[in-house]
Design a protein around this nucleic acid. Sequence first.
DNA 1: AATGAATGAGAATTCATTCAT
DNA 2: TATGAATGAATTCTCATTCAT
Lengths: 216, 216, 216, 216
Amino acid sequence: MPPTSKSSSNPPAKRGGGKGERTRARILGSATEVFAESGYSAARVADIAQAAEVAHGTFYTYFDSKRDVFKALADDVVDEIFAALKGGPNLGSTPLERIHNANARYIDLYGSHAVILALIEQVATSDAEFLGTRLDLRRRFIARVERAVKRMIETGQATGIDGLDPHIVANALGGMIDNFCYAWFVLKEPFEKEAALHTLDTIWANALGLQRPAKG
Amino acid sequence: MPPTSKSSSNPPAKRGGGKGERTRARILGSATEVFAESGYSAARVADIAQAAEVAHGTFYTYFDSKRDVFKALADDVVDEIFAALKGGPNLGSTPLERIHNANARYIDLYGSHAVILALIEQVATSDAEFLGTRLDLRRRFIARVERAVKRMIETGQATGIDGLDPHIVANALGGMIDNFCYAWFVLKEPFEKEAALHTLDTIWANALGLQRPAKG
Amino acid sequence: MPPTSKSSSNPPAKRGGGKGERTRARILGSATEVFAESGYSAARVADIAQAAEVAHGTFYTYFDSKRDVFKALADDVVDEIFAALKGGPNLGSTPLERIHNANARYIDLYGSHAVILALIEQVATSDAEFLGTRLDLRRRFIARVERAVKRMIETGQATGIDGLDPHIVANALGGMIDNFCYAWFVLKEPFEKEAALHTLDTIWANALGLQRPAKG
Amino acid sequence: MPPTSKSSSNPPAKRGGGKGERTRARILGSATEVFAESGYSAARVADIAQAAEVAHGTFYTYFDSKRDVFKALADDVVDEIFAALKGGPNLGSTPLERIHNANARYIDLYGSHAVILALIEQVATSDAEFLGTRLDLRRRFIARVERAVKRMIETGQATGIDGLDPHIVANALGGMIDNFCYAWFVLKEPFEKEAALHTLDTIWANALGLQRPAKG
DNA sequence: AATGAATGAGAATTCATTCAT
DNA sequence: TATGAATGAATTCTCATTCAT
């Protein structure tokens, strides 16, 4: 996970171990906390600065506005997720293994970025750019699922969804994972990881009509 | 718990067909539009009043605050959804028919209230009461799904999820419908109703391992 | 002098004898005072509001910004001056009388608007629109002088400036009046009106080489 | 009164060709540019420093404040102009020649310092000291003109302004030159030097009623 | 001396809410 | 009840100046 972030428009130092860079990082951290605590709209720049233990004005040494810190935060998360979604096919010798790995990866990814993901959702309501981000995020994920579903149909591995539109199937099954993560990590519904994963895997397998290899 | 909107604390007329009631309704309508357009935080009372073609001050003749109109709007939706969720079991002679009817009902319900539902989500971020509302809404829906799943297991209709926790299954399958509706009605992803419903029904049936009655 | 002013972009009332209009007028008056006292940059909206005895926020009910009040003020003055400059030729049976009347008019006009004129000058330094205003004001005045000078040359009334460019002559003589007014009304150099006018008239007459009619 | 800049209160080097002195000069130069570009109030110390290619903080190694650089700049100009105005009588064997030389000198002086002169004007609006400077500048110039006018009246060289107050005449004719320079160098109205000078000389001569020596 | 990060005192602006008519 | 002017608290953002290194 590289500490990328490329949106801050007000960089006093050229990144590195300098004092400025540490302050910037502290502000980013505080911003995440404050946004998580109060939501985007209710968060005040003054609070972020205070949480970062810098003067109010110092915030503006590093970021142009509240939106700008948020964009920095969001860009980092989006980059990382896109990178993960672009990564090669999921490993595994059976379709079920590959589904399991994909679900596990998505859950981990979501879990690490749940706060920012939920915030992007929120902000998207009144900011066209983030609405785009939000849609993009979903579409790329669904597209990946859709490709996998098509492949499984073509190779005869999925036999339960003949005649269904893979795009709709992908939206349903992808959305299932997404929503589950949302409930789990954003709404904080308590789930036990092993059981949750196993359940989701099974539902996928059943839904697609996977040819169950003699397993255990 | 009165069945309809209970939050407006400033009722100038005693409800009915009076002029006051019509004005109040107009403000509620404009509020929905303005909230939908700008999001809750960015929406301005002045805009709502203007859209309702009343003076800025008149807004406060009917509602105590911006939050108050929103609560009136949300309460109506929440009441209606709760009523629907409390309603008797879904009709249908086969499990698949009952699932189909439940899904169709949920989709219709979501579709009619998508705007407010999305707004409740937003507001929940910084308002404890609406956070409660939001959780309640999900939990009641999931609980209903959970009851149905349990019943199908107990009656031997669902054979594919032996050993899985019905609570997790319900969260997954219920969340699938919820997320699909979200993509469809909030994010405006275009889906064709017949195909979508049929796909969702099939995935449920497959996932649960429904004993397919010889159908058509 | 009509109380025109057309730039305020935030009009709560449609002008008239209403309360709003009176408040607006009071703010315009206070703005003039505060600008005169502190200069444009140093003037604070809070001071203008306080001087007008309204709440700080009330200022924004009538004007969008500090610049906006200033524009309202400037536009009024500019309109009036343009109207005066567009007015028919100066009356008088002899060239000297006409010059005298023109000078007297200009002095009166400048005197009534000295504060705003000086402010426009100031603001022009860092605001392109007002720089345009300022140039326009000068050019229209000079153009008028230039036409008069040309006419006097053509009719043989001015015999002292043969071979000179009337445009330069107009800039010099027009500028002389302008600068005199500036010293008088802005820098507050004390001059006695009769003497000043007579001196300026005489210099014009001499400079142009007016055929002195046997006068007194 | 030391002959050169006396205001910088923060001299790191003892003036001379040292590095410090060169840096100081660079800052003064950048300050002129930035002030000219944006006006005094809108000019930012950060911009001046950047234009001088020094760190923001370095500015304060050489000057105490934004006002302080400006004062250094203004003092240099004021000193030079005062020196010129104090200089001996203008050379020339005829009054017209002397007027011509005086006008030419003033125009050159104004031309070289137009930027700072215009800025002093601006700053005078909200700074008592510079208001004094501004008045002083004008009064000294007018006083010199007044002395010349009186001399020409007394020696019978000026016959056109009998009975007029030489103080008013000086304000008018001196102001004419001043305003012309203002239009030319500050407002950037394009004038051709030869023609402009000749026109101004002629107007002076005519206005004063100079006895035209048989010329050329 | 030089650097540039940090400071914090303003100043502008917004907008929910109140209130006199 | 309806109106819309008035209020002022809350927030953002700016930038001259200071200061540790």
